[in-house]
Amino acid sequence: MREQNSATTMNRREMLKLSAVATLVGTAAFPDKIQATQTVAMKPISLPELPPKASEDLAATLFPGFVQTEVRTSGATIPVFHKGDGPPVLLLHGYPETHVTWHKVAPRLAERFSVYLPDLRGYGDSSRSARRRSPPQLLVSRNGVGPGRDDASFWARAVPCGCPRSRCSRRT
């Protein structure tokens, strides 16, 4: 019993320490929240910052024959899976998913179309949005560069550049 009690005390001490650290971290990252986090102890979050590396085997199973490329832009790197010839088809997934959402549909569409499957920015393995007020996702630079030469113009036209319409030089 004594041992249990002392263990409980230790746990409480540990918890207080941890919550103090969490408070510091929380206030540093979100300064406008100082008041709330000073009065309430936060349980620490133990999660990695980025997702673990993707399994290539799984990608090959779900998307047989698809080639993974990356679209580098001024502010983000977007992984794109691609397969097929024919008219281009861009498939965009939803929340809280990734391009994997298309794994039953994309291989069949790729029989007749050139299918592109990106992860929206901030989702899947794409790079994260650094700033608030970024317009709806999949932001790439004005000169979006695609996986191949022929695809570059497709990407440049097909992908939203992210500027407000009134200020966009790419406006059509």
């Binding site: 088809v89 861009l90 965009l92 939803g94 929340y95 959402t101 549909v105 317009p135 709806p136 996702q137």
Partner: peptide, 14 residues
Amino acid sequence: MGAHDRGARVAHRL
């Protein structure tokens, strides 16, 4: 272009 949920909002904006 085919788009679902959040992706469809991107497509709508595009």
